[in-house]
Computed example of a mutant assay.
Amino acid sequence: MSAPLAVLVGPMGVGKSTVGLLLAERLGVGFRDTDDDIVAAQGRTVADIFVEDGEAAFRAIEKQAVRAALAEHTGVLALGGGAVLDAGTRGLLAGHHVVYLAMDVEEAARRTGLNTARPLLAINPRKQWRELMEARRHLYEEVARSVVATDDRTPEEVTQEVLSALELKEA
């Protein structure tokens, strides 16, 4: 059975795609992001799916995208911030090399501006982000083999920490 070398989870804006690309490059493998898979398959943005179909419809699509990526991809995989909400998805992550990329609200504000292009943060972004993290932090921790803090660190520093945490060797 094939499996990703590393699976990155964490909140929106934490740098899963940026670190994932760097990590894949350093390991000499491919990178895949389930949000990108969803956009390609649906022909519309994640925000548009939320607005037009609702969060429940998006989560169902996301669940299938994660299932497919875990079964097919052998490189570095980044999951959307809410993928861990589904118990079935959390079960699928068991046994994988999952890394939770963590950050605090001030770092989130600095990186993303907590802007309204993110559908779950449209009203009172700082409060919404804190509430999302209160609801999700334990789920990220549940599925993760390692936790890597990203606050005040460059993508390169975070990538090196992920390599060390998973004891992976560069290509």
Rank of each mutant, 00 (worst) to 15 (best):
G95N: 03
M103Y: 01
E161H: 11
E156L: 12
V143D: 01
E170T: 14
L120T: 04
V143I: 08
E170R: 13
R153N: 06
L79E: 00
V29R: 13
D35Y: 11
G82H: 12
G15V: 02
P4N: 05
G30S: 13
R137M: 08
D36M: 09
A65V: 03
V46S: 02
V7T: 10
G13F: 11
G43D: 05
A135F: 09
G81P: 04
T112H: 08
L132T: 00
L114W: 11
M1T: 08
E142H: 14
P119R: 10
T159D: 03
V148A: 08
E62K: 07
V46L: 15
R26H: 02
A57C: 13
H96F: 01
R118T: 04
A56Q: 12
G30R: 14
F31A: 00
F58Y: 15
D86Q: 09
L8S: 10
L27K: 00
E157R: 12
H97S: 15
E52V: 06
S164N: 12
D48G: 02
R90S: 06
V76C: 10
D35N: 09
G75H: 10
L163C: 06
A57Q: 11
V98R: 07
E131V: 03
E141I: 09
L139K: 14
V148T: 06
A24S: 07
D37P: 01
Q128A: 15
A122G: 09
G88F: 12
T112F: 14
E52M: 11
A165H: 09
A165D: 09
L168C: 06
T45A: 13
D48Q: 15
Q160Y: 00
A57W: 05
R59G: 05
Q42C: 10
A94R: 15
L27H: 01
L93H: 00
Q160T: 08
G80A: 08
I61M: 14
A144L: 10
R145N: 00
A41C: 02
V66Q: 10
S146C: 15
A83R: 11
T18Q: 13
A47N: 01
R110H: 06
V7H: 11
L114R: 00
A65R: 09
L168Y: 04
Q64A: 12
P119Y: 08
M133I: 15
G91A: 02
R59D: 09
S164W: 08
P4D: 05
V162T: 02
D151I: 00
A41W: 06
R130F: 00
L8C: 08
A94Q: 15
R44F: 01
D53G: 03
V19D: 00
I61R: 12
E157M: 13
Y140L: 06
L166S: 08
S2N: 11
T18I: 12
L114H: 06
T18F: 10
V84R: 03
M12D: 04
A109M: 06
R126I: 00
G113Y: 09
N124G: 04
V29Q: 02
R126F: 02
V147Y: 05
R130A: 13
Y140V: 00
A94E: 15
G30H: 12
S2L: 14
V76H: 10
D35P: 03
L23A: 04
E142I: 03
L27T: 01
L168H: 03
